[in-house]
Design a protein around this nucleic acid. Structure first.
Lengths: 333, 333
DNA sequence: GCGGCGGTTGTAAGCGCTTACACATCTAAG
DNA sequence: CTTAGATGTGTAAGCGCTTACAACCGCCGC
């Protein structure tokens, strides 16, 4: 079943059929209808490979995601895919994991699939090798590389960022102003976005003339138990803690478990702030104050920027979207 | 940059280059190495479209998922993608939503992409129209349709199911045996898997000679608050409840919130059982007893079955994987 | 009556790859 | 020494589509 079958049955040439297929205006209304009718009748579907061969594009975008089972990233993938589809683009999903070698392989795979652009979700972008990779792609192909909440500078690299700095700055500042002075910052990774959050925390301390104490910035796994145990350990070592600011809701839940074990009341004895405003925030008891990072807006902007690039417009290489603080029961600020 | 450039530079014919590309054994070690060296030097990447044109396959599987932002489905997509990749297949992700018209469009899109099979995740499979669609595909193409925890009968339709019946039967039975007699079953949808769970609940009642009371089977949205409010309403109307069995962890969390509001102690006054053993189960306080539905095993089995189909083996059209009850703090059975 | 001009359609040359078949070598058995 | 068979390589015909170019038609103005 190919274009010849259609052309034969419709009594026209394959060129005409192809024109109808591509919405070329140089076809009389009459012929067009006839061809369309035959296509319908035969249930004809154009062969995407042949088409791609000629056009050398497949209207397909590669999505690289470190871990699509992560709640936050799953949402990002979902919204990205959704928005792409509304623009008539498909996506090939590539879950790379955090291993650099795998990322590189995924990148090559997407390139070999002749995707029209690559959207990266959840990469850390502080790893020199990955930077190299992104640079190499951007340089060797004209492929736009879109980073969702990541940052790299480069010819064809475009970033849509959440304003993590001001989000963390905002809550930290409010907590301090409300009288808190032992603020633990618990984070999971040294990603670009992670670095911005950390800066926000530090800036708030500094603007309030509070000392920076290294042990009050602790890294742990993105895991409820690991977060809980980290705080338990710190507490046992005598650390005073009246607030926990985290880089992910799961850590905040860990903090909540710690408070429960120690019979500390939340938010009186200890304030807890989550991040990403995921379902964990409303699942927790009491419900978590959390930062809404506007995943959907981030993804929509990323895709729209990409579409503008395809259309030949100049676009800013960097867009910042501000986050919201969602106040719930784990703070009284 | 194409196969001709490589063949010329290597001083061989394009056929030889193609053979090297495809691992055809009829190439001398010497020539092969020369060709590989030239490819490397030129940074040659075969054009996937041309390849697809010749082979009429792209080693790509379409994944249809109703909502990849759902925790359970995100996991399923993740494992499926992962397993496919380990078999050297790519996936095109299509989030269809629950609208039938969209599902149909997604189906057509995947077909037009010439995917080699379709894996459906999270479809309800009780909707007549969708069945029709699946039947049409299965009949009109030779495309295998793989259902992850869904059930349809048809020529090229293969299902990997979680044994939801025995999972729910098991907990319900244990609860009854431990003395509970007012067991509320809270569920979200009338999917195939949902129907099996319900049957499990009913069977357990019946085997313990307990009456079936319609109002003890309640449907609500997959949403913490909606579940909570549903139970609050029932309770206010005077319903006795000493156990809540749910079809999703989020509903169980809702039940937990109800218990908290009513100062009922868990599990003494009320036992609560979740489903899917998601992160919500360990996020909740107390942690939820939940059913581990073995998503990974389900997905791995689905992909492996597909690979066997591709290799020409006969495979069962239906595989059942048993679920585990993970005992935590919301039950004392 | 003729050239020219839109509008419409057809012809044929790719796009980059796979692969059946043909052909050339070389080996080993008869 | 011949020859069947194994082994390695090349030729060329697709795969189904796009599109530049050519060709045709009817119609206009001169």
């Amino acid at each position: 079943m190919n274009i010849y079958d259609v052309s034969e049955k419709a009594g026209v040439s394959i060129a005409t059929v192809s024109r109808v297929l591509n919405g070329n205006p140089n076809v009389s209304e009459q012929t067009k209808n006839k061809v369309l009718a035959v296509m319908e009748e035969l249930g004809y579907t154009p062969n995407i490979f042949a088409r791609g061969l000629g056009l050398n594009t497949m209207k397909t975008i590669g999505i690289m995601c470190t871990d699509s089972s992560d709640i936050y990233l799953a949402n990002a993938v979902y919204y990205t895919e959704h928005e792409l589809r509304s623009h008539d683009y498909d996506s090939i999903l590539c879950c790379t994991g955090y291993d650099l070698e795998n990322k590189k392989k995924s990148l090559e795979l997407l390139l070999s699939k002749r995707v029209d652009a690559i959207i990266m979700v959840g990469s850390k972008f502080l790893e020199p090798k990955l930077e190299d990779n992104a640079y190499i792609i951007a340089a060797s192909t004209q492929l736009p590389i879109m980073l969702v909440n990541g940052f790299l500078e480069g010819e064809n690299i475009f970033c849509t960022l959440c304003d993590d700095f001001h989000a963390i700055y905002g809550v930290t500042d409010k907590l301090i102003k409300s009288g808190r002075h032992s603020l633990l910052y618990l984070y999971t990774s040294n990603s670009y976005s992670g670095a911005r959050k950390r800066e926000g925390y530090l800036a708030a301390l500094s603007h309030n003339s509070m000392p920076v104490r290294e042990q009050y910035m602790q890294m742990c796994k993105k895991d409820i138990k690991d977060a809980r145990d980290t705080i338990i350990r710190l507490h046992r070592d005598g650390m005073q803690i009246d607030s926990v600011i985290t880089s992910d809701d799961s850590l905040a839940v860990g903090a909540l478990k710690f408070a429960l074990l120690n019979q500390m009341s939340v938010p009186e004895d200890i304030c807890i702030v989550g991040y990403n405003n995921s379902i964990l925030a409303t699942c927790a008891e009491p419900e978590l104050t959390s930062i809404d990072t506007k995943v959907e807006a981030l993804c929509v902007n990323t895709v729209n920027t990409l579409m503008r690039i395809f259309d030949g417009y100049d676009v800013p290489s960097r867009t910042m979207i501000s986050a919201d603080i969602v106040y719930r029961k784990t703070t009284n600020i």
